[in-house]
Write a protein that binds this DNA or RNA. Sequence first.
DNA 1: TTCTTTTTTCGACCATTGGTCGATTTGTGT
DNA 2: ACACAAATCGACCAATGGTCGAAAAAAGAA
Lengths: 211, 211
Amino acid sequence: MPNTMKYEKILDALEELLKSRTIQTISVSDIARTAGIGKGSIYYYFPSKESILEALIERNYEKPLDTAKTLARQTSIPPFTRMAMLFQACRNSSSEFMNQENSEGIPVSTHQERSIIHQKYLNHLVTELKPELTEIIRQGIESGEIHFDQPAALAEIVLIVLAVKFDNTLIPTTQEETQATIRGLISLLEKGTGNPPGSLNFLMSFHDDTK
Amino acid sequence: MPNTMKYEKILDALEELLKSRTIQTISVSDIARTAGIGKGSIYYYFPSKESILEALIERNYEKPLDTAKTLARQTSIPPFTRMAMLFQACRNSSSEFMNQENSEGIPVSTHQERSIIHQKYLNHLVTELKPELTEIIRQGIESGEIHFDQPAALAEIVLIVLAVKFDNTLIPTTQEETQATIRGLISLLEKGTGNPPGSLNFLMSFHDDTK
DNA sequence: TTCTTTTTTCGACCATTGGTCGATTTGTGT
DNA sequence: ACACAAATCGACCAATGGTCGAAAAAAGAA
């Protein structure tokens, strides 16, 4: 508890700098200056520049993912509703600090430079949420709302598609295309889980929020 | 036609070096030395180090993707068979120069460093193959073999899942898990396209090749 | 061939970076 | 007050991506 303060300060500094620049253009000295500490101190808390970024990513994901997890455990709520909530949480966590700039006007190369972040995001989101979504689906199967015999696989498929589409830099497409794909996924889910067409449309709701 | 030779030489050099090291640990001087030319010449053909990598990736993807494309156009072959062939092509192109090392023994951080390559791969594969797979599906719909009203979305979903799972570094899992997910996808496809269970099992065939 | 002009090649050079290190300060227990 | 550990710092280092002007090759022009 003595020194966590400075540790967090470093993360804050990087987070701040990351809003207007890419990791590659941010030097360790920049981080130190922004954090208001000496450069040497940085390496007292982190072994490398890369590790700072990883720690920041971890920090930012923990919160939304944790809430999503506890949310997912509310067995009183019907499975598909919880699924929708989980989607929502995904979406929020994704846009949290990935799309700090409206991605217009940023050259393609800059997108590329963020690849480590995006990859980490994809990995975290899917691996962390897969057990939760699997459990939700399993409960849905038991209660007869979902007809599919491979809950884990289904969970992973859904998460992969959602994560990739939410992070619009991995495969940049227009809003319309993204929506079309999500709609297709829902359609596929309906037929695949034995639900009538349109019954899962409410899963889309998370996607047309304000802004 | 005069100087393409040296251009290719640079790409060859990077490709060679990439087999044993990561991009970040390869300096432009290294590339120059390996290619047997002066460092300055590199910047005569490429504007930046990053661009060399991109050109290399482009070069390596063109071949397998082109064959996959022409393959996909053989309307005489039934849709699902062509789909399987396309999957196969995906798989080959993915393992071509991503997994040059047996990924055992490589620290996680090293995996991360390759993220740009993997991201590029994912993007290329999906965007290039989506129109082709969409067309195949569309034909399958017309011929009554596929019942699904959003061919483009379905194509993208399938490609995303396959591309992510083939590239086992984005979300590293065990072989068994990967297989389980693919099996789930096929299951989902069967139910989603109105085909009897097990009828699309042959799509798995591509996955248990030698080695 | 010889002269001129353009294209290509090169490595010394530069600014900057990630990371190290010993010195110095701050904190803590006795 | 003392000793000892924890924490802080910025000068310093080796190495990097990229620049530049000079010089060699190539290509015309005569």
